[in-house]
């Protein structure tokens, strides 16, 4: 099975899955904290509308986990540029 690396740990995915789906399937429900309240956030709308699911992929910040398809070896951190 293919893998991405989320904050240092391997997370499996099926080809065609979004990074958000792969994280959810692995039981990871949140991956960033809010700017002022420091509250955890993960998927909410699932279709690219809410921007709650921001991640950084291979150094590229502020991408939506529900929109980006996972690729073998992707290095993923939670949060965008403000985190």
């Amino acid at each position: 099975m293919s893998q991405i690396v989320f904050e240092g740990r391997p997370v499996p995915f099926h080809p065609g899955q979004s990074i958000g789906a792969a994280l959810t399937a692995a039981g990871i429900r949140s991956w960033r904290t809010t700017r002022s309240g420091g509250r955890p956030r993960g998927l909410y709308c699932g279709i690219g509308v809410c921007f709650d699911c921001l991640i950084t992929v291979n150094g590229r910040p502020s991408l939506r986990a529900c929109m980006v398809e996972a690729r073998e070896g992707d290095v993923v951190e939670g949060g965008g540029r403000d985190a």
Binding site: R29, S30, P40, R41, G42, L43, Y44, C45, G46, I47, C66
Partner: peptide
């Protein structure tokens, strides 16, 4: 986390 939209 864990609250999603139905569509999501």
């Amino acid at each position: 986390p864990g609250v999603l939209t139905a569509g999501g």
